[in-house]
């Protein structure tokens, strides 16, 4: 970790009460700032909150909101639930995959984009659905998918 990363981490520890109960909150903050949970950050978290490293790692691998490998600044979630599947989620995904050169679960080398596939986000009426960061896009024409992503 660079000096700057260490400072960021210290900031996160400073914002949260230094107690085992803060574990999830701290991991969420790290995930948000670093876009993943760097290994050293987990070790530092264990020390700062006085939680055994094994428990930190257990929580980090349990929740799908956490990632142990770098993820992109922009997370693109493509719904492949039943409704979206029928309304052409695959075509949409194809566009994104070839446009960004990555497969679902992967991140572009410049760490800008990560594609994820999710199952039904509860918005079937506007299938196919794509979520870029926190923004929901409904009725996405497959040829516009990439443009929507780049605009994010």
């Amino acid at each position: 970790m660079t000096q700057q990363d260490v400072t960021r981490l210290q900031g996160i520890f400073g914002r949260n009460p230094r107690e085992p109960g803060s574990l999830i909150a701290v991991l969420q903050d790290i995930q948000r700032e670093f876009h993943y949970l760097p290994r050293e950050a987990l070790s530092e978290t264990a020390k700062a909150l006085e939680v055994p490293l094994s428990k930190v790692y257990s929580a980090a691998t349990f929740y799908s909101a956490f990632s142990l490998t770098p993820r992109g600044e922009n997370i693109i979630r493509v719904c492949k639930g039943t409704a979206c599947h029928i309304k052409g989620a695959d075509l949409l995904l194809d566009q994104l995959e070839s446009g960004l050169g990555i497969k679902p679960g992967e991140t572009t080398p410049d760490l800008k984009y990560t594609i994820e596939v999710v199952n039904c986000v509860g918005a079937c009426a506007m299938a196919p659905v794509m979520i870029v960061n926190a923004k929901y896009h409904g009725n996405v024409p497959c040829n516009r998918a990439l443009r929507l992503v780049k605009k994010a």
Binding site: P52, S54, K55, Y57, S58, T61, F62, S64
Partner: peptide
């Protein structure tokens, strides 16, 4: 010690 734990889900 808590050296090991459940990993993944």
């Amino acid at each position: 010690r808590s050296a090991i734990s459940a990993v993944g889900r």
